[in-house]
């Protein structure tokens, strides 16, 4: 449908952070500038986005090339604290949907009440038969899923029809 354009984005930097959020947040802010995101939401700074993933997990989305560097700075910053940092840039892929029908097209694939999503919300959900996460980047929607099912995910997104 012409109302939605689907684009597979190139490599995106991603870092998983596990630990108590009050432990992780100061390090994230110091290294990336992103404030601590509230439950299910995300914060943005310097082209990076810090996402709330679960009560003890954040994900940092950044430039692919800077991910290893950021990860080691985060590791240093956290020192001996009980926290785990891992670069996971290659584990997932990201699609971008643009056009006025994007949210409606996504609503054909995932049990999400789009009208009740916060603008900065990162919704982890089920996209047809695979786990996925969605969020807004300006007027565009981003869809993240595991790398191995990129082919399936792309077929879903290109076939999705706004209602």
């Amino acid at each position: 449908m012409s109302e939605v354009a689907v684009r597979a984005m190139g490599p995106v930097g991603m870092i998983t952070l596990r630990g108590a959020l009050e432990t992780l947040a100061p390090a994230v802010e110091a290294v990336t500038g992103c404030a601590q995101p509230a439950q299910r939401l995300s914060t943005e700074a310097n082209g990076r986005r810090a996402m709330w993933m679960s009560p003890d997990e954040l994900m940092l989305v950044c430039d692919h090339a800077e991910a290893p560097g950021l990860a080691s700075r985060l590791t240093d910053q956290l020192g001996d604290a009980f926290a785990t940092i891992a670069v996971v840039s290659d584990a997932r892929i990201v699609f971008e949907l643009t056009g006025p029908g994007s949210a409606s097209a996504l609503a054909s694939l995932m049990p999400v009440d789009f009208a009740r999503l916060d603008p900065s919300e990162v919704r982890r959900t089920r996209m047809a038969q695979i786990p996925a996460a969605i969020w807004r980047e300006g007027t565009a929607w981003r869809v993240m899923c595991f790398r191995s099912v990129a082919h399936y995910a792309e077929a879903l997104l290109r076939g999705a029809v706004p209602a």
Binding site: S108, L109, A128, Q129, I130, F146, R147, S148, V149, A150, H151, Y152, A153, A155, L156, G159, A160
Partner: peptide, 15 residues
């Protein structure tokens, strides 16, 4: 619904 053809089930592919 969408679950036909390539979208019938997710088949995982290695790099």
């Amino acid at each position: 619904g969408e679950a036909r053809g390539v979208a019938f089930q997710p088949l995982r592919r290695t790099p």
